[in-house]
Computed example of a mutant assay.
Amino acid sequence: MSRIATFTMIGLLLAAPVLGAQAQAKRSSTDAKAKKLYCWNKGSERICSDALPQEAVNSAREEFSVNSGLRKGGVERTLTEEERADAAVAAAQAQLDQAAEDTRKRTEQAMLSTYEDEADLRRVFVERTGILDNNVNTANYNVASLRDALVTLLGSAGDRELAGQPVLPKQAEDIRLRHAELVTQKRMQASYLDQRKALDAEIEETLQRYRLLKGVETDPRG
């Protein structure tokens, strides 16, 4: 073996421990950089560990660097089935709200370009107003008629009782039926009246919006 080769081999042998130590130090440094510290709450207790146990996987936690101690990030807790369903409903509602807002803006633009004045806009509600007014009038008539019929039946039954005679089964059945019909018609009457009031409010709100879009001031006297 030549003298140069001998010196080269000696140099490699001497350098080997140093190179191995450097590689080990590099690996240790890399491992330390990659290692994290996890912190989460278990009831009222705060727990921190460099290993995340299975029971804490779904918990909200913070992650810190072992080397620097700086916060590296965090993970929200896993939602339950019910929470995921609620979130889905909320997202769907938000989408509907946005669609409603977009529709409102398009409607306002159409309102400005379609109707020249308030009288023109009021005509849009004429058919709905007529239908509801007819329903209210019909319900009023039915309630009055059924009440009169019921009063007559009750009077007839009362006369029989005053005369010491029993109320006939047919009379009792007629009274029951008329009373049930009267209750139904009164509910319908109340519903139609509520709908009419709601329509009046809708008309007024639409007119107010129209005036605002047109830049027309509202007369304080109405």
Rank of each mutant, 00 (worst) to 15 (best):
V126G: 03
A32W: 07
L12H: 02
L96F: 08
E118I: 14
A25Q: 15
K170I: 15
N135F: 08
G130K: 11
E217V: 12
T78E: 11
W40F: 01
A110R: 12
I10D: 02
R122G: 02
R176Q: 14
T218H: 10
A56H: 00
M1H: 09
L207I: 15
R178H: 10
S49T: 07
T107G: 09
D159M: 14
S68P: 01
L70M: 08
Q195V: 01
I131D: 10
R196M: 04
A16K: 01
C48A: 06
Y210C: 02
R187L: 13
Q24W: 14
A100I: 05
D50S: 03
D31T: 12
A198G: 02
A180Q: 15
L207H: 02
T184N: 10
K214N: 05
D133H: 09
F7D: 06
E108N: 15
G11T: 14
F7W: 13
L162K: 15
A32K: 13
E76F: 06
M188I: 11
G11Q: 03
L12A: 12
G74R: 06
G73N: 02
L168I: 07
R71C: 01
A91V: 08
R176I: 06
R77S: 12
T152E: 14
K26Y: 08
R123Q: 15
Q171S: 14
V66C: 03
R84I: 06
T30E: 15
I175M: 12
R123G: 01
T8C: 07
V89M: 08
A34R: 12
I47F: 00
D120R: 10
H179W: 06
N135H: 12
R176C: 05
A92L: 11
N67H: 00
M9E: 05
P166Q: 08
S29Y: 09
L177A: 11
R106D: 09
E116Y: 09
M1D: 09
G11I: 08
E205I: 05
V143T: 11
M111R: 05
D200Q: 11
K42H: 09
A100Y: 04
Q54I: 03
A34I: 00
A180F: 07
I47Q: 02
R27L: 10
